[in-house]
Design a protein around this nucleic acid. Structure first.
Lengths: 269, 269
DNA sequence: TTGCTCCTCACGTCACGTGAGGTGGC
DNA sequence: TTGCTCCTCACGTCACGTGAGGTGGC
């Protein structure tokens, strides 16, 4: 292990500072060293860990891959073994995440149904345990919701929702004649599909009808910040951020074809 | 510990049989005994575990609570401490499950966005690690989507969507005049809100407009089974289950006010 | 001199999985 | 006699958290 005198520490960082910068604990960095994932670039004469720029960069990649849900073992292989198939591992990982999400969401609806039954019970001595033991709603078969919004110009709407509202763009699909037939956007908890107008199923854009049969609410971490970004991008604000009596701070905006969006966050309490 | 001769085992069950019946392993039952959660009713003279009817019933409750995501420690308290607040623990648990779901779904969309970029990359030597390191979409601030569907008669729509399509009912909120102003339904991965018609925001029911500006897709485990249940309940089918070229098996139905719903499942491959 | 950060063990977590080595009933 | 199930230790898992006891730099 390289030992350096303290006048050579210039571009090195100590373990506590690195941990804070990376949002980890010192103990986690000790652990990464113990399993051979991330070793300090050097040590001081007193044995204190020192991390150089290359090592810091490596830790940045580690934390990124960690957020994707890979194990430390997998991350080590991804970083050190050029023959290891990272894309394959991620693809496999996505399907296991899907399974976990399905199980948790089934659980979530099941538990809230049980609790709703408890609240509604006229007999308060009614045993919750009995309810749970006999409930069948723990097996609701409805899995994921996907909202499908109708637009005249899919590529334009796709670009607008990405640029102005900040959705992550997914694919835009075209038919052989070059008409856009499908487009996807990613929000935090799933996907939104965009659909062209069609007489066959009586679907039309709010721009065509002058009214809408649905709107979208999207939860954000900071309503005011999102509002100021959208305003700066030229978004068409319907009303600015306001605390609503039903427990949300929210503002509302219309997109390029007049569809209504509310961006909101639950108020404390 | 009660020891019984083998001619007194009549209504007792052995550990291997109990494990199989409960979908657990023998080791798990050993563990439950070690932590004091479930002890056998008796032992044979040779020391083999024997479980009576009361103990089997207790294990059934344990597995049920386990499916709700409670820890073995919490389950023990729920079963043995009459003063312990099971409903409170479940309520707390629901919000932690929500957080987990949000994190996993954010992860899921992030990873699939990364993989989509990899697939679209014209340069196959483009480094996936580079992509992940530089991707900003992993920090998308948009959290949860909530679809808001417009209906003339909220209580009727709430009842229809629950009874016919199988959504789990949430609350219906009324104003002081007795008008329904808000209603909620639970699907597998979140909530759907129902909203009354309002001129102020140009929102109207498909029944009023004759057209719709949005539709909903809902993923189910078994499209044909859901279709047959909805048909039996008198649902208005638009087209029956069919494999679509874009990779889903789906069918479509209209609800009590003409809103279009697709129930679908991804095809293999 | 006083704080603060740093160091190295080393046990604990959660719900079992997985042998190791051996015994009693059908 | 041969399988099968059963028994009791006891270590391993995964990514650290949480002290215990102590040292070096500002």
């Amino acid at each position: 292990v390289l030992r350096v005198a303290h006048d050579h520490h210039r571009n090195m960082i100590r373990v506590g500072d690195l941990a804070e910068a990376a949002g980890l604990t010192v103990r986690a960095l000790h652990h990464y060293e113990a399993i051979g994932l991330l070793s300090p670039s050097a040590r001081t004469e007193a044995g204190h860990r020192l991390y150089g720029p290359g090592t810091v960069e490596r830790l940045y990649r580690i934390t990124r891959l960690r957020r994707l849900g890979l194990s430390l073992d997998q991350i080590g292989r991804a970083l050190d073994d050029p023959n290891w198939n990272l894309a394959g591992a991620l693809r496999h990982h996505v399907s296991s995440v899907d399974t976990q999400i399905a199980a948790l969401t089934a659980l979530r609806t099941g538990v809230s149904a049980v609790l709703a039954d408890v609240d509604a019970a006229t007999d308060p001595t009614n045993d919750l345990l009995e309810l749970i033991t006999t409930m069948s709603t723990l097996d609701n078969p409805l899995r994921r919701r996907i909202s499908i919004l109708v637009y005249r110009d899919l590529p334009a709407a796709h670009a607008y929702l990405t640029d102005v509202f900040g959705f992550t763009p997914g694919d835009v699909t075209f038919d052989p004649d070059g008409n856009a037939v499908h487009a996807e956007l990613y929000a935090g908890d799933g996907v939104i599909w965009l659909h062209p107008e069609t007489d066959a199923f009586a679907l039309a854009s709010p721009q065509t009808l002058g009214k809408a049969t649905a709107t979208m609410a999207v939860m954000v971490d900071d309503v005011d910040e999102h509002h100021s970004v959208v305003t700066a991008k030229g978004g068409q604000i319907v009303y600015g951020p306001v605390d609503q009596p039903y427990g949300y701070r929210e503002y509302s905006a219309r997109d390029c074809e007049g569809a209504l969006w509310s961006f909101m966050k639950e108020l404390d309490q």
